[in-house]
């Protein structure tokens, strides 16, 4: 049993931290790959802004995408709500309201990560090297935070709301990366499904922490296999299915009936993903598949909000105590 407000805070703290970590990792990998880019090929900076879903805002603030302005937008722009520094700030504000709920060491790490970010921004020196170092530090901090969650939190509601936030955010981010990269990284649209530029697929895999596991399990790059791996590999810890299964597990562990709706939705979603092969996804169209996936993940998110804030029927506050005390 936990305060609705606290459950909501936990869910969002985890989401913001995951969002920041996913962004810094993506940026780090993209930067490294950009160094190898061949003459004449498309630079990858604008797609990074596409992945956030805030490309319109980016263009209105910065115009044409360059390496430096995309990095600035994604990492240090505090007028942009989903920048790394905004996410760390909001996570920390949320976590302040959780201090009696989460282990002290976890709060300290979240607080420290924010302090580091403030320190970095106050130094006002944003060379790519320094931004990248900050990205790597942030990513490492996040790994530490996840370690603390796993090693120090009791497996109660707080833990499960945290896991829900982390895995839903991650699944969402993976689907966006797959979506955007799939279209932007191929040199020409007519090449989709025909000529495969290995380097681009490698990049996609790498930005999702998937490269080594993919090669170990499937050997050479093949588009349908890569897509299948990212979407529904049951053992790869960053496949969409793996994330959703973890979220499902946490929903099942929540001791309340209100989670039922979210649970049934996520079960249905997982079942559908399991049935769909990589080839089938390409046949349907990656774009269509992911659009549908996002709609359904949003529906899971809405149902989770309902489980956090149980619905209030009319006259709810007048119920006799015996019926509401649990």
């Amino acid at each position: 049993m936990m305060l609705s407000r606290v459950a909501d805070n936990l869910f969002w703290t985890a989401r913001y931290l995951e969002r920041a970590a996913d962004t810094v990792h993506l940026l780090d990998i993209s930067y490294i790959l950009d160094l190898d880019r061949q003459e004449g090929s498309q630079p990858q900076w604008e797609p990074l802004a596409w992945i956030t879903g805030d490309i319109g805002l980016f263009r209105s603030l910065y115009g044409e995408a360059t390496r430096d302005n995309v990095m600035h937008f994604l990492v240090i722009d505090d007028t942009y709500a989903n920048s790394v520094s905004s996410c760390l700030g909001r996570a920390r504000e949320n976590a302040k309201g959780l201090r009696e709920q989460i282990p002290q060491a976890l709060w300290e790490e979240i607080n420290r990560q924010w302090l580091d970010g403030e320190q970095f921004r106050s130094e006002q020196e944003f060379s790519p090297t320094r931004i990248l170092r900050f990205c790597r530090d942030t990513h490492r901090n996040h790994t530490l935070i996840l370690g603390l969650v796993n090693e120090t939190m009791a497996r109660g509601s707080a833990y499960h709301f945290w896991q829900l936030g982390t895995y839903l955010e991650r699944a969402d981010k993976i689907s966006r990366v797959l979506h955007v990269k799939y279209f932007h990284l191929l040199p020409r649209l007519s090449d989709v499904g025909t000529i495969v530029d290995d380097a681009h697929w490698e990049a996609l895999l790498q930005s999702l922490h998937a490269r080594e596991d993919y090669h170990r399990l499937h050997g050479m790059v093949a588009p349908d296999k890569v897509i299948e791996f990212i979407v529904r590999c049951p053992v790869f810890s960053r496949s969409i299915l793996f994330c959703l299964r973890n979220a499902e597990e946490s929903l099942r562990s929540l001791p309340n009936l209100a989670a039922q709706l979210a649970l049934s939705r996520i079960e249905r979603l997982c079942a559908r993903i399991e049935e769909t092969s990589g080839a089938a996804i390409i046949a349907v169209g990656v774009h269509e598949f992911i659009n549908q996936l996002q709609i359904e993940m949003n529906q899971v998110g809405e149902a989770i909000t309902q489980s956090i804030f149980p619905p209030c029927p009319a006259g709810w506050s007048r119920l006799p105590a015996a019926e509401v005390v649990q």
């Binding site: 049993m1 936990m2 305060l3 609705s4 407000r5 606290v6 459950a7 309201g97 201090r99 009696e100 709920q101 509601s157 929540l254 001791p255 309340n256 209100a258 489980s307 956090i308 804030f309 149980p310 506050s317 007048r318 119920l319 006799p320 105590a321 509401v324 005390v325 649990q326």
Partner: peptide, 26 residues
């Protein structure tokens, strides 16, 4: 103890309860 704010509380006609993920709790 849970740390509550005013918006977490509700008077149900007899008791002061907090709004939790499992409903109201006295």
């Amino acid at each position: 103890a849970p740390l509550v704010e005013g918006r977490d509380l509700v008077y149900d006609g007899r008791y002061v309860c907090m709004k939790t993920t499992g409903g109201l709790r006295r």
